Simulated assay, not measured.
Amino acid sequence: MFNIPAITCALTAVLLLSGSYHFLQATKSCQRTDQINRVLHGIMNVLMAAMLWNLVPSTVLAQIAVLTGAALWFVIQAVARSEFKTLCAGSQGRLKCLYHSLSMAGAAVMLAMMGQVTTGPVPAGGISMSNAHHSMAHAAAPSTAAATLDHSPGLAIWLTVLFAAAAVVFIFLLARRRVTKTTLDDAATSRPSVRAEHGLEALGAAVMAMMFATMS
């Protein structure tokens, strides 16, 4: 699917716009933890956009390390004691951090499954993730972990379903937010921000689901 230029460019635009939004919000935030979270989200979006075009494959291990570290960072926030109010607070905040940890881990797993160290030229319109996935089986001296992931289409199917379900949940939350009655102050301040967050989460989950679907 991703060897179609229009689709690849559209997904790239979504990821880069989402990443730019997170970087912009990081500069506006006054809280250090929120700044770190925003930057990590921006980095994840940029890495996923690069993944579509098979850019800098020589740094794939470093990219996986960054995403894995980001996943652990969100797990730490989710399980932190309630006294640390700058971290995830409340049940909703903890669930949010757990999902962000899952999305970071999902991006890392996607990189590992793809293993995009291809020797041939990149197809027009970006890589074909399905072809790149199967080409790993013929790569010289693959690592045990990469080989295991390469032969696990079932994992890709489960992750496709998981992120597709997440996209549906965020779309539902976005729709519910539109019909919920709020005060004028809420409508002028927090509501647009929450809508933007839910919209970006829905888009991000949908993109993750589409990318995993091509690897199943």
Score class of each variant (00 low, 15 high):
172 F>H: 12
189 T>W: 12
129 M>C: 03
158 W>T: 07
181 K>T: 09
189 T>H: 15
185 D>M: 11
169 V>F: 09
182 T>S: 10
126 G>I: 04
134 H>L: 14
154 G>V: 13
163 F>L: 08
165 A>C: 08
186 D>M: 12
159 L>M: 06
160 T>L: 03
133 H>W: 10
170 F>K: 00
159 L>D: 00
134 H>G: 13
190 S>K: 15
170 F>I: 07
131 N>G: 13
192 P>L: 10
153 P>S: 02
127 I>K: 01
180 T>W: 10
129 M>V: 04
128 S>G: 08
120 G>R: 08
161 V>H: 05
184 L>A: 13
123 P>F: 04
136 M>S: 10
130 S>D: 03
162 L>K: 04
159 L>W: 01
129 M>Y: 02
153 P>C: 02
183 T>W: 15
152 S>Y: 02
157 I>A: 02
195 R>D: 09
187 A>W: 14
154 G>W: 09
135 S>V: 05
186 D>S: 13
188 A>G: 11
136 M>F: 12
172 F>W: 13
175 A>H: 07
165 A>W: 03
163 F>V: 00
162 L>I: 10
157 I>R: 01
136 M>I: 15
176 R>E: 14
125 G>R: 01
184 L>E: 11
181 K>D: 15
176 R>P: 08
175 A>C: 13
123 P>A: 04
182 T>D: 08
130 S>T: 10
169 V>R: 04
132 A>W: 00
124 A>S: 11
148 T>R: 03
197 E>Q: 14
194 V>H: 10
188 A>D: 14
198 H>G: 00
198 H>N: 09
189 T>N: 14
150 D>K: 06
127 I>D: 02
122 V>N: 07
190 S>T: 11
194 V>G: 06
151 H>R: 09
188 A>R: 13
186 D>F: 11
198 H>F: 07
168 V>L: 10
183 T>H: 09
183 T>K: 12
134 H>N: 11
141 A>K: 05
136 M>L: 15
124 A>E: 06
192 P>D: 07
194 V>A: 08
124 A>H: 04
180 T>M: 07
140 A>V: 12
146 A>L: 02
177 R>S: 12
164 A>L: 08
158 W>L: 11
172 F>Y: 13
190 S>G: 15
166 A>V: 08
195 R>F: 15
159 L>R: 00
182 T>E: 12
155 L>P: 00
172 F>V: 13
151 H>K: 07
130 S>H: 05
141 A>I: 05
137 A>Y: 14
164 A>N: 05
176 R>S: 14
161 V>S: 04
143 S>G: 01
186 D>P: 06
163 F>R: 01
137 A>E: 13
167 A>F: 00
137 A>M: 08
145 A>Y: 01
146 A>P: 00
191 R>Q: 14
121 P>F: 08
187 A>L: 09
158 W>D: 06
122 V>Y: 04
185 D>F: 14
167 A>I: 03
138 H>Q: 12
131 N>Q: 10
169 V>K: 03
181 K>L: 10
